[in-house]
Amino acid sequence: MGNIKWIFVLFSLGAILAMAFIGVAVALRNIPLIILGIVLLCVVMGYGFKTKKKMRDQGLL
């Protein structure tokens, strides 16, 4: 438990916030905000997976 990769904690929190944003946009029935939330979620998760692969290739994970 002592080896926490804080960058991944931030990526996961960003993804959670993006999902919550999508939920709020659905509740508001606002299509542009729903699309924005989906794009935001894809960007955050994609960048997180890209960072994880890069760190794994460098032997940091």
Rank of each mutant, 00 (worst) to 15 (best):
G23W: 04
G59C: 00
N3D: 10
L33Q: 00
G46R: 11
I4D: 11
W6K: 12
N3K: 11
K5G: 02
L36A: 14
G59A: 00
V26F: 13
M45C: 09
N30C: 09
I4H: 05
L10D: 09
P32H: 05
L17H: 08
M19Q: 06
K53D: 15
G23Y: 03
I38N: 08
G14S: 04
G2D: 06
N3G: 08
W6N: 13
R56D: 14
Y47Q: 15
I16L: 13
F11P: 01
F21V: 00
M1E: 11
A15I: 10
I35G: 07
G48I: 09
I31D: 11
C42L: 15
L28G: 06
G14C: 02
I31Q: 14
M19D: 01
G37Q: 04
V9A: 06
I31P: 07
F21L: 05
A18T: 05
L60G: 02
A15H: 01
I31C: 07
F21N: 08
Y47W: 08
G59R: 01
L33F: 11
G37F: 03
W6M: 13
G2V: 10
F8K: 09
R29A: 02
R29S: 06
L41K: 08
M19V: 10
G48M: 11
L33D: 02
V39T: 14
V24L: 11
T51S: 02
L28F: 10
G37K: 03
R29I: 01
K54C: 00
L61N: 13
L10A: 05
I31S: 09
D57G: 01
V43F: 12
L33Y: 10
I22H: 02
L61D: 11
K52P: 00
R56T: 10
V39C: 10
L33G: 01
N3V: 07
I31T: 09
G2I: 07
L33S: 06
R29V: 06
G48L: 01
L13T: 06
G14E: 05
F21S: 10
I4S: 13
V43T: 13
C42D: 14
L40G: 08
V26A: 15
A18E: 03
L60D: 08
I4L: 15
N3A: 11
I22W: 05
L13F: 10
L33C: 01
L17W: 02
A25D: 11
V39L: 15
I34P: 10
